[in-house]
Design a protein around this nucleic acid. Structure first.
Length: 442
RNA sequence: GGCCCCUUCGUCUAUCGGCUAGGACAUCUGGUUCUCAUCCAGGUAAGAGGAGUUCGACUCUCCUAGGGGCUGCCA
């Protein structure tokens, strides 16, 4: 048996759909698991939409997800001559014929049709869907060359698969009906018929096929929203496959080792943004410390133009990142969370102000801690906590903690308060407490 | 309309004739805690419906219902 060769064959439209990229993931995993080759074919015959930019977006998405391919990229447009040669072959052998047809939009012209067998059944064993059979009489002859002389998908696809020596075709469910036709072309050409595996669709929360109207349907949008490629990859993989045990968060190595196309589900799976979000959080927690620190620095820069990363030392950034990491669900949440640390220009959440500062006693509490804090020599979280603990006398620090938090950060939630104060430093803390007591309390 | 495919908690799924139907997300309750988050403990929640085969069916067969795909000079 020769080596396994699979391909991902998208039309570059500038957007990479998640259903499509899942097919790429399954192809990639199948190739890596079996030690075969994962090929990329760009079906760029639609000259309107397949621009260099669109192709760049495709490459970018694949790189982002770590879908590396083997061999040279195969461009369908470069194989048109071959497609037409094969059509001549089919014409000569009687498997194809020309006929004058009128298209739906009323144009009349001569197209080349593939002649389907008129009796018997076409059968194949789909790796995911099982045995498939269809009576030949139920399938009409179909066009393979347009009246303008350009080859149509069916012939181009089959010829390219032959030329790329593809052994397994793993693609979307919407191609099952085409498979019966394609098998007939392979046979007419005397070429070996590849094995097929058809993947179910991903549906939205209404149970309908996922479309661009359902919010994030394109890979690029997840990237912009701060999802990690590993999380998207893992989530998409789980939509229709599982390792057979209770593991869900898997390393790339485990995925490659455990993936089996035979275990891919036949049923459509509903896309659940909540579970993806959870998984993203899981992956964020797993980011190595140093890497997360860099991520925080980078994102912090986007919320404070005047920020000079060097204003703080590595220990400071490391401490902040540690506090943040466990609470971060999306990388895009980072700027808002760090804003009060790197800039004095931050928003006060009206609800938090209402709830914590506009309350009787809040002003006095702030003034009181402000006085005590100003006398602290050792400006560290434990010391500051001891100060507030002393004030509360064991009755709960809430009356002090909440107003302080809102006063210094503008928000009702965030990292531990005393860690926050330590990071802010004495000067910022005291001036913000004084400002809030004076201007925001009643 | 015709042809093909599918149907377990709200969602993703385990189960390959023995099930007190398991896990995860979501949700709810409680614990830890200065908030949020994390973490820990626990709860609610499922075999579309109907026949049959069988000692026994979620697992096999058939029918019905519901859902999806295809039915182009799109891919």
């Amino acid at each position: 048996m020769s080596e396994i060769r699979v391909r991902f064959a998208p039309s570059p439209t500038g957007k990479v759909h998640i259903g499509n990229i899942r097919a790429a993931i399954y192809n990639w995993l199948f190739a890596r698991h079996t030690g075969g080759k994962f090929l990329l074919r760009v079906e760029d015959t639609d000259l309107e939409r397949s621009t260099p930019e669109a192709i760049a977006v495709l490459f970018d998405c694949m790189k982002w997800l770590g879908l590396d391919y083997d061999e040279e990229v195969f461009y369908q447009t470069k194989n048109v001559k071959r497609h037409l040669e094969v059509v001549d072959q089919l014409l000569a052998s009687g498997h194809a014929y020309k006929v004058e047809k009128t298209s739906r939009d009323g144009k009349t012209g001569v197209v080349t049709m593939f002649r389907m067998p008129k009796e018997g059944a076409i059968e194949f064993d789909d790796i995911v869907k099982g045995h498939m059979a269809k009576k030949a009489e139920d399938i009409q002859d179909f066009a393979i060359v347009r009246s303008d002389g350009s080859p149509i998908f069916h012939i181009a696809n089959v010829v390219d698969d032959i030329d790329q020596r593809v052994t397994h075709i793993i693609r979307g469910d919407d191609h099952v009906e085409n498979t019966f036709k394609h098998i007939c072309i392979f046979r007419a050409l005397g070429a070996p018929v590849p094995k097929y595996g058809h993947l179910s669709m991903i549906v939205n929360q209404q149970g309908k096929p996922y479309s661009k109207r359902d919010g994030a349907a394109f890979v690029g949008e997840y990237r912009e929203q701060g999802y990690l490629p590993e999380a998207l990859f893992n989530y998409l993989l789980l939509l229709g496959w599982n390792p057979g045990d209770d593991r869900e968060v898997l390393t790339r190595e485990e995925m490659v080792k455990l993936f089996e196309l035979e275990k891919v589900h036949v049923t459509a799976a509903m896309f659940d943004p909540k579970k993806l979000a959870w998984m993203n959080g899981e992956y964020i927690k797993k980011i190595p410390h140093e890497e997360f620190v860099e991520e925080v620095k980078r994102r912090a820069g986007s919320c404070a133009q005047s920020l000079n990363v060097a204003d703080h030392d590595d220990a400071w950034w490391g401490y902040l990142a540690d506090q943040l990491q466990v609470r971060t669900k999306f990388l895009n949440d980072i700027p808002a969370a760090v804003r009060c640390f790197v800039s004095d220009d931050f928003e006060f959440d009206p609800k938090a102000v209402e709830k914590r500062l506009k309350k009787p006693g809040a002003k006095d509490a702030l003034i009181e801690v402000c006085g005590l804090f100003s006398k602290v020599d050792d400006w560290s979280a434990p010391t500051l906590e001891a100060v507030v603990k002393g004030l509360s006398q064991g009755n709960g620090m809430g009356p002090w903690v909440h107003p302080i938090r809102v006063a210094v950060s503008g928000r009702g939630e965030g990292i531990g308060l005393f860690e926050m104060l330590q990071l802010l430093g004495r000067e910022k803390t005291l001036s913000r407490l004084a400002y809030a007591a004076e201007n925001l309390c009643e």
